[in-house]
Write a protein that binds this DNA or RNA. Structure first.
Lengths: 338, 338
DNA sequence: TTTATTTACTTAATCGGTTAAGTAAATAGT
DNA sequence: ACTATTTACTTAACCGATTAAGTAAATAAA
């Protein structure tokens, strides 16, 4: 144990630390012979400059923070890959923070990030977050880019997908497949993507003159077993829905399992479309129709915009926001007539 | 933009930085009145101590690195959750590094980690890694714990699962289900888990007196389309296997899709068992029999052992290694007789 | 030869925090 | 009343690296 420092190199070579530092950075102030001696020793002792020393002096850490609800979720893990790909290319490091959809945790994390630990932050807001002071405070101090789950009130770049259209499209797709009683499974009203998807859903119901007394929105929450019970109850009720739009992919397993348990056939008895990035959707029983978000691209773009601002040493501009459309991938869970 | 420093607080309050620092740490050398003034100002300016300043002086960063092949993989994302849960509890931060199964990338990452950036490293070796000098060099400088994909040659704690037994068990399960021609889809011979799983497979073939000319090991690689072609070829061949043991979960989709394409029925024509942590295995078509690893627990234990060593300020000891068994979860993809 | 410039370094300050050591003033002890 | 101790600070060194400013010696120019 024990890391090699510039001081050790200097001592070993009878030089000042300044000379060693300059030699390593190939300064013209150092003779070729000395440079070689320094380089040789640095290589043989496997010297790596201490990043925090440099960060302190240069007032930048070459590190960004990625604050996301969860990694065990295809959307976020793909987005993370996109972010990471750009970070690597720019020589940056990525600190990952998981909020687990919890506001208190998110507050703690963002408070910590006010310290100067990172040069910039890319985040996707937790489902349970309904106040935004902690984000505003961070935004005063560090460049910030939102992706997917944004905070509308904060003036910065936001990378989103066309949530309203997708809510509309998913619903329209079910209507065209013959569904009359369409339920939207939603989460957190405070979340912008949730409300946009819901607005799209509602507009589709209106545009296609659906009987809205038969359609409703059901709020999903964090308690998984309660959600399952909720689903079972929903599927047992006499005006059982014949179509489900699930706004988060996490719900998929439970919907399928609940239907299996009750002997309800997808797509014959009920049709299901989920917002999901699960690459296994094609091999589900039945294969699942999804609204699939451009996760990797969204992460990549969010990171690109952040790094552009870091390079210019400016604020992240809200007019750099972008909307990358999602795809409706039609599979067996919504095909065949009812 | 601009972070609040202790110097600003000191200036504002007409105190030395030392006094402010001590007040913030509730030192007895500072009067109650002064402490209150400092605390009030710190709160109102939202002061957060700069972590790198402290790290430099205390020679510890309260940060660990997690080096894994991929996040978009249930096993690793769950393990990461386990690691993160412990890190949070201990007040540590986690830097995530993705090797993307690439040795060069892994070498670069580990070299960087020799800098003192982190206090400890938890890693799972990349598939393509076949030399270990870079890991040995890191291990000289920083406490290291392996999980799942370990490097046998390095004397440190290793958290694994019972790979040999699982390879054996999966194969035995197929044999008992009536399979005669069992193929093992494997990756990277240099990886310890791979070879252990394969050894278990081979031993099961011997113990149950299978005709080994009908069974074989096929090497999967990084090129996904080539793998798909390989599978199609395998499934079209005249002595087509009637059982597949897939040692990595990534293969699942392709196996299912290839079978669909060729009209081969699982489990009637071929039975499939995969090493997988995908929570959607129960809703696959057909539901997938899996060997499921205790991912979260493995991550949690790896982190616990690392933090124990950090606390004691000692080496991580290899006798703290542990093996947490996986489960065979039997589902439809291996049931029914052939 | 004398001065100017270049070469090849060293010294010292800095980043933001912590802490050992120093100090003046107030309080306590005898 | 006089020393001893406590209180409540300040000064200065340090962590590891970078860099502006300083410096001695060698070389070039006048």
């Amino acid at each position: 144990m024990g890391v090699v420092t510039i001081k050790m190199l200097a001592k070993e070579l009878n030089l000042s630390t300044a000379a060693v530092s300059k030699a390593l950075r190939d300064s013209h102030e150092i003779s070729t012979a000395t440079k070689q001696r320094v380089l040789d020793l640095a290589a043989s002792l496997h010297y790596v400059p201490h990043p925090y020393a440099g960060s302190l002096r240069e007032k930048r850490s070459r590190t960004i923070a990625v604050v996301i609800p969860e990694v065990a979720d295809s959307f976020f893990s793909l987005a993370l890959n996109g972010i990471e790909a750009v970070a690597i290319e720019k020589g940056y490091h990525a600190l990952i923070y998981l909020t687990h959809e919890n506001q208190e945790r998110e507050i703690e994390i963002l408070k910590d990030l006010e310290s100067g630990r990172v040069d910039g932050v890319i985040m996707s807001v937790a489902m349970k977050t309904n106040t935004f002071d902690h984000i505003k405070l961070l935004h005063k101090v560090v460049p910030l880019v939102f992706f997917d789950r944004v905070c509308e009130e904060i003036d910065t770049a936001k990378i989103t997908t066309n949530d309203y259209e997708c809510g509309y499209l998913a619903t329209k797709h079910l209507i065209e497949a013959g569904c009359k009683k369409i339920v939207l499974l939603s989460v957190s009203e405070s979340l912008s993507i949730s409300s946009k998807r819901m607005q799209g859903y509602k507009q589709a119901l209106v545009d296609y003159q659906m009987d809205e007394t038969l359609c409703r929105v059901i709020d999903y929450n964090e308690d998984l077993t309660r959600n399952y019970d909720l689903l079972i109850e929903l599927l047992k009720s006499k005006d059982r829905p014949d179509g489900i739009v699930a706004t988060v992919s996490k719900m998929t397993t439970e919907i399928y399992l609940a239907c299996m348990e009750l002997g309800i056939k997808i797509p014959n008895d009920i049709k299901v479309v989920c917002f999901s990035n699960d690459s296994n959707a094609p091999i589900f029983n039945p294969s699942l129709t999804t609204i699939t978000q451009p996760a990797f691209e969204m992460g990549k773009l969010a990171a690109t915009i952040l790094f552009k601002a870091l390079k210019r040493n400016t604020q992240v501009l809200s007019d750099e926001s972008a909307v990358i459309p999602s795809d409706l991938l039609i599979r067996a869970s919504t095909t065949g007539s009812l």
